[in-house]
Amino acid sequence: MNYQKKKNERLSTDGDNFTWWKTENKNWSDKTSVSEGATGTIFNEQQTLEYSTSAKFIPFEFFKTTHNFHIGAGFTNNEAAWHRPNDYTQYFLPTGFNTDCIKNDGSIDIACDPDYIPSKKATGQYSKTKTVHGMGSIDVQQDSWFAFIEDRLQWDKRFEAVLGLRYDYDSLSKNKNIAPRTAFHYKPFGDQSLKFSTGWNRYYDRYLVVFPKVC
């Protein structure tokens, strides 16, 4: 049995992020554009409870083959929460130029910079495009469980095989997946000096909860 609690906080005093053309005052990059601002505050928390068990049986012989059965099962409960307490606004590279950035009420627009831009040979730039990632919260719970059975068999000293089957289910996707677990080995000299292997297996991603952006 395993229990985990994970918490992640990204704290920020600002919720605006800007990309500017490089100017005489905004010159902290050797590229033609610079960035400033932050990406807002985000809180993540996840609790996971897992339990699994398995058993291996005593090997037995059947028609000159030795069989070793292995069975197992497990359950996982995930409870996760995501929270953005304030809007986060991303301003894209300005496409407007030649402005003093002064609005009708005498204030300076935050998406505007009045400095001279050498690469554009213009004074003043302002962004016409932005994306607002809205404040919001997400709470989600996921239950998943699995079960498997396999038989490891050996015939003579040259042939080995693994024949198995696994079943998975999770409550978010409602998927019921059945997957084979097979492997076949041939050892022509009866030892590990040379071995030929083949098999057929299918694996499904047991993903963690991924939180989308709330836009």
Rank of each mutant, 00 (worst) to 15 (best):
F69A: 13
N77T: 01
N68D: 15
I117P: 13
N8D: 14
F148P: 12
I178Y: 09
N25D: 13
G96Q: 15
T182S: 07
G199M: 00
L163R: 10
L172W: 01
H133A: 01
I110K: 15
F75N: 11
K103E: 12
E24F: 12
A73C: 13
P188R: 00
N2V: 13
K213Y: 15
A73W: 09
S29W: 04
K130N: 10
Y169M: 04
S52D: 15
P212C: 01
A80D: 01
D30Q: 07
D170R: 04
K174H: 07
E160P: 04
A183R: 06
G37L: 07
P94F: 05
W145V: 03
N25G: 13
Y3H: 12
T13G: 13
K176S: 07
Y126H: 08
I138G: 05
F75I: 08
F146T: 11
M135W: 01
K26W: 14
E150H: 08
T23H: 05
D205C: 13
G134I: 00
K31W: 00
K187W: 03
W21V: 04
S197N: 03
Q125D: 09
D109K: 10
Y91W: 10
I71F: 11
N17M: 03
F148W: 09
V132M: 05
P212T: 06
G15F: 01
Q141A: 03
N17K: 09
S12G: 09
G106D: 08
Y91I: 04
N177I: 08
E50I: 07
H185I: 01
A179D: 07
V209R: 00
F211D: 04
E36V: 05
A179Y: 11
D109W: 12
N68H: 14
S119F: 14
A161Y: 02
D168M: 00
N25M: 09
Y3F: 10
K6H: 15
F62N: 14
P212Y: 01
Y207I: 02
F43H: 08
F69N: 13
G134D: 07
K56T: 11
D139V: 00
G40W: 00
T65V: 04
D113L: 14
P180I: 01
G72Q: 05
D14H: 06
H185F: 04
K5C: 11
L163T: 06
A122M: 13
T129P: 02
W200C: 12
P180Q: 00
D109L: 11
I110A: 13
Y3I: 02
L165G: 12
R206H: 09
N25S: 14
N68K: 15
R152Y: 13
T76E: 06
F60N: 09
F57W: 15
F92C: 04
Q142D: 04
F189M: 03
S12H: 01
Q192N: 04
Y116G: 12
S54F: 13
